[in-house]
Amino acid sequence: MSWDKDWRTSEIIFWPEREEVDKYVYTPGISGQELAKALMDGRVLGIKCKDGQVYVPPKTYCPDFSQGELVEIRGPWRLLHYTVVYEDLYGNRLQNPIVIGIIKPDDASNGLIHIVNAELERLRPGMELKPVFKPKDQRKGIITDIDHFEPV
């Protein structure tokens, strides 16, 4: 029986509850710490594994569990896949649709998921993009330090 169809909330006894914890504090991890520093300088890092594969963002360990070496990712970056978001989580129509893409640098074997600022009709997989960083004083060492990617 679904109470929200049959009754008003004033007619049932219920207990409102609070959140479980006030907040979560996450740490970036060992290589995440290095990435955070690099993002503050406007750089992106990756990890180079023994088999020559480069992964972005860097991880402390490679898929075979060995430790890799941090390398700087220089690009060029290319759009692999993308989608267009027309509504936000609450069902509100967005005035400007957001393009979300997976953007892969040529010198790494995988890509980053990020926002793409480009006209919808210009979008095509394989197009070259470049990261646009936030102004230096607004960077926090997290992935949104890259404000978006845009066509070169």
Partner: peptide, 27 residues
């Protein structure tokens, strides 16, 4: 008390040590 490592990195560190002791690899 407060590890810098992410949960994944903690798991990796322990798993790698166990594999090394066994003389095995992920394969």
């Amino acid at each position: 008390r407060r590890a810098l490592e992410t949960p994944r990195e903690l798991a990796w560190e322990a798993a790698k040590m166990a594999l090394d002791q066994a003389g095995l690899t992920l394969k």
